[in-house]
Design a binder for these strands. Sequence first.
DNA 1: CTGAAAGCGCTTACAG
DNA 2: CTGAAAGCGCTTACAG
Lengths: 339, 339
Amino acid sequence: MVTIGDVARVAGVSRSTASYALSGKRTISPAVRQKVADAVAELGYTPNAGARALATSRTNVIALLGQFFEDEFAPAMLQYILGVTDRARELGFDTLLVSDSDGVSALRRISDSRMADGFVLLNVAENDERLAPLRSASQPAALVGLPGNSEGIDAFDLDFAAAGELMVERMHELGHRELILVSQPEHVVERGGAYVWRLANAAAARAATLGVTLHHYYAASSQPEIGKDLNAFLDAHPDATGLLLNNEAAAAALPNVLQARSLAVPADMSVIGRYSETFARTFSLPYSAIDSAPDLLGRRAVEHLVSRIDGTADADTHVVDLIAPIIDDRGSVAAPPSR
Amino acid sequence: MVTIGDVARVAGVSRSTASYALSGKRTISPAVRQKVADAVAELGYTPNAGARALATSRTNVIALLGQFFEDEFAPAMLQYILGVTDRARELGFDTLLVSDSDGVSALRRISDSRMADGFVLLNVAENDERLAPLRSASQPAALVGLPGNSEGIDAFDLDFAAAGELMVERMHELGHRELILVSQPEHVVERGGAYVWRLANAAAARAATLGVTLHHYYAASSQPEIGKDLNAFLDAHPDATGLLLNNEAAAAALPNVLQARSLAVPADMSVIGRYSETFARTFSLPYSAIDSAPDLLGRRAVEHLVSRIDGTADADTHVVDLIAPIIDDRGSVAAPPSR
DNA sequence: CTGAAAGCGCTTACAG
DNA sequence: CTGAAAGCGCTTACAG
C-alpha cells in the first residue's frame, strides 16, 4: 500500500511537507506543491482512513440508525436512507447503516469505538430509548422524528399537527361536514409513533372548532386486513364524504375498495393522503396528499448534523425543525355530492 | 476517552497484557484476566476502531455498494440492504452504505482508503463498470446479480433462466398454450439488467420446445404507463390465458386492470409473477410468484464475503451461486377456461 | 517556507 | 505467564 512516506520520498520532501501540501494547512511553495501533486498522481496515493481518524479524531463517517419494524411500511424507509447517504456524500461523509434491533447498544458500540462523528436517528419514538445513550455520547446527533423531549438534540420532522389541521380545513372549505380519518395501527402509537396522534389530535381539534364530524380509526398496515377495515369504516359512516389517510397501506388499498363500492373520486368521495411523492409515483396513487418529504428530512438532518460536527452550529441552541405540510394536488378533492 | 492504557493502569498490568487478556490471543492467568475484566467494566472501555484498524489492517466493516435508478423499483432494494446489514452484524461487521451515483470512483475511494474489509455489490449489470476496479482492489467482494464475466469474484443471484422455464412449464402442465410475458422496460436491459433477458430467453426457449406461444413485451416500470401497457397486451392477444410477470410494477397494477376487464384470476386468466415475499405481503399481491429472495441473497453474499475476508474460503475457486426458483403458491394458476 | 519528532490508541513479535 | 518496545500511517505543534 502506498503511504504518505512514499509520496514524500518520490517528491523529495519530508512527510510533514507532503501532508501539508495535501491539506493546504500551511503555505507551500508552488514548486514543492507541484512535486507532491505529481508524486500523488504517479503513485495513486489515498490517505489511510484509519490512520487519519486516529490522528485527527475525525472519521468523516456518520452513523445512520434505522429501526425497521415488521408492521410498518418498509418501502418508505429507503427514501429517508437515500436522502441521508446522498447528502452526507455531498458534504464529504460516508454513512454507516446500522439496523441492529437493539438500537441502544448499537449506539453505544458505535459511539464508544469512535466509528462515526455523529448520528442520524430514523423513526424516533415519543420516548425513544436511544435518546439516553445519545445524550451521553460524545458525538452530536440529529433526529428524524420528534420525541416528547428533544432537549439538547436537533430534531427534524414533518409538522404532523399542521398536517392534520390542513387536511380538515381543506375538506371543510369545500363543504364537507363528515370525514373519516384512517391512522396507522394502534400498536404503532403504543410503540411511541407520536406522528400518529399528533396528526389525529390536531385534526380532531380543528374539526371540532369548524363543526365538522370526524371519525377516527386505527387500521391495519397491510393487506388484506386494511381493505376490510376500509370497507367497515365506509359501511359504518355512509354519509361521510371525505377520507383522510395517515396510513400508506390504506392509500395503496383504497383504489380497489372504492372501485368495488362504485364510488368515484372526487365525485362521490374526496380523499387526502399523507405519503411521499415517490410513494405516490411508484404506486400510482391518484390522491392528493401531504408530502411526507423523507428525502428532504434526511438531507436536512445531515446538513445540521455536519454543522454540529464542524462546530459551526450554535452549541447552546438546538433546533426543532418541523416542515410545513404541503398538499400535492392530484385532483382527488372536490365539493361533496349534493343530496 | 478511556484507552487500553487506562485499563492496564487500573488493572495493574502492562498494556500488552491488557490487550492479550481481551483478545485471548495468549494464555493469561485467571487472576490477571479477572483484574482486566474488572477494569474494563469499571471504566467502560471500548477499543478505538481507528486505532485497531491501523494496527491490524482490519476494519470489521463491509461496504455495500448500491445503485439506485429512478426507473427501477426502489422499494425492493431495501430488502437486499437489510439482508446484508443484518447478516453482517451477526458476523461481527458493520456496513457502510454507499449510494454514490459514480460507483466506480466510490469503489476506488473506499478501497484505497481502506475503510472496509470487503465489498458487496448490488444490482450488478451484465458489463458492470465496477468490476474492473473491484478486481484490482485488495479487498474481496461478493456480487448480488450475475455479470457476463464473474471470473475471480463470487456472485449470488436468483436463477432467472430456471425461473423463466419454470413459469412456462407450470402453465403448460395445466394446459395453457398462449402466454404473455411482461418484462422490465427495455432500457433496463440496455443498461445491462441481464436478469431480464436471462428469464425471457429461457422462457422463450422452453415455450418453443413445448409448443407454447409466448408473446414477450417490455413494459413500463411505473404507473400509469404500466396499466396502459397491460391493457394493450391483453387487447392484442385475446386468446392468451396466462400472464408471466418479471416486472414488479406490472404485478402491482394488474389487479385493477383485470378487474376493469372483468377477468377473474385464475378462472379467466392465470398469473405467475416474480417478486419477493415481502413485496407480495406489503401490496397484497394475490398472485403465485417466484420469490426473488432479496434477503436470502444479501445474507449469502455477506456470508461468503466474510469467509473470504477471514481467509477460510478457497482462494482459487470462486462461486456462482444461483438459487433455484420456487413458486410461492397463492392460487393464481389453474387450467385455462374451456372455449 | 520546510523538516524532525511526537503522538493518536491499538496489536504483536521479541525477550525474559 | 508477563512486560517493554516497535510499528501501523497519519497530523501537527515545535524549531529553524
